[in-house]
């Protein structure tokens, strides 16, 4: 095929979706930037007001703390599952895989509702503890930081399992055998073989989980208290409660900036790995 025909072919297939993407996706995203600077007036009022507001600074640090801790927790839980899956025979692996896929496909609302029932003041966990200790237990497990972390970790863990499992399965088995033959103890094998060789999966999983965690909206709104609001909830607050669209847009721009900052080093690392 010559070059002109190649271009014509590509244009015929790609043009409709490209036009829609430009008008329905790129335009709204640019419109956020435009709104954050108050339209044609071009003022940085929203940004300076945000940076000076205690609410914004508190929400920013809450977002970072929650996102980083939830990512770390899901990395830990996801790694445990991935190690377990990697050890199974292919048949049993696909069976256990369903136990990860089903939660992966479950709506975040279903999870939040279930956790209000499980973790509520007279919820399942407190009931069991009351029964076990023989005295009334009413631990506050939702509408606070614990609830948000439990909900987010539950949602994010499957996203770590898939990439980590892929890297674990790619490790040549003879490396393990060699390490064992040379007398390495299991903990040493894990430290010097498994962990470094699964690093690409860890990085891939961590970057996707971190990106999602920074933008979480539903879980902090339903399982968190007022002090656990994240930047996404602040966007909603400015859009619906105070109707200050420029502020909402400025928070959105800063949130997007944070996401880009968070994945940039990780994607550089990933490129270096490959």
């Amino acid at each position: 095929m010559n070059r002109a025909a190649e271009l014509r072919g590509a244009a015929a297939f790609v043009t409709p979706a490209t036009l829609v993407t430009l008008t329905i996706l790129a335009a709204p995203l640019l419109y956020i930037l435009y709104t954050s600077f108050e339209g044609p007036a071009f003022s940085t009022r929203a940004y300076s007001e945000l940076l000076g507001s205690a609410l914004f600074r508190r929400t920013l640090s809450t977002t970072l703390i929650i996102a980083i801790s939830a990512s770390a927790l899901s990395l830990l839980l996801g790694y445990i599952i991935a190690l377990h899956l990697a050890r199974q025979t292919p048949r049993r692996r696909s069976l256990y895989m369903v136990l990860v896929l089903l939660p992966f496909w479950t709506s975040v609302l279903v999870k939040c509702y279930a956790f209000t029932v499980i973790l509520g003041r007279s919820g399942l966990v407190n009931e069991v503890l009351t029964w076990a200790t023989g005295s009334q237990v009413e631990l506050a497990l939702i509408l606070n930081r614990i609830g948000v972390l439990i909900g987010m970790t539950n949602y994010l863990t499957p996203f770590v399992v898939f990439p980590v499992l892929a890297s674990l399965m790619a490790i040549d088995e003879s490396v393990y055998r060699a390490a064992a033959v040379m007398g390495a103890k299991p903990s040493r094998i894990f430290r010097t073989v498994t962990l470094p060789l699964s690093l690409p999966g860890i990085i891939a999983g961590l970057s996707s989980v971190l990106v999602m965690a920074l933008g979480f909206f539903i879980v902090p709104a339903l399982l968190g208290g007022p002090r656990d609001a994240m930047l996404s909830n602040l966007v909603d607050f400015y859009t619906r409660e105070t109707l200050d669209w420029s502020m909402a847009a400025a928070v959105g721009v800063l949130l997007l900036g944070m996401v880009v900052l968070a994945i940039a080093p990780l994607s550089v690392l990933r490129r270096r790995q490959s």
């Binding site: 995203l29 990106v211 909402a248 996401v259 994945i263």
Partner: peptide, 23 residues
């Protein structure tokens, strides 16, 4: 073009949602 079409995978949905809302 591919980057633009895939961008919603990275952009937090609250940001795309706000963009749609304003636009």
């Amino acid at each position: 073009i591919m980057g633009a079409m895939l961008s919603p995978l990275i952009i937090p949905s609250v940001v795309t949602a706000l963009g749609f809302y304003l636009y």
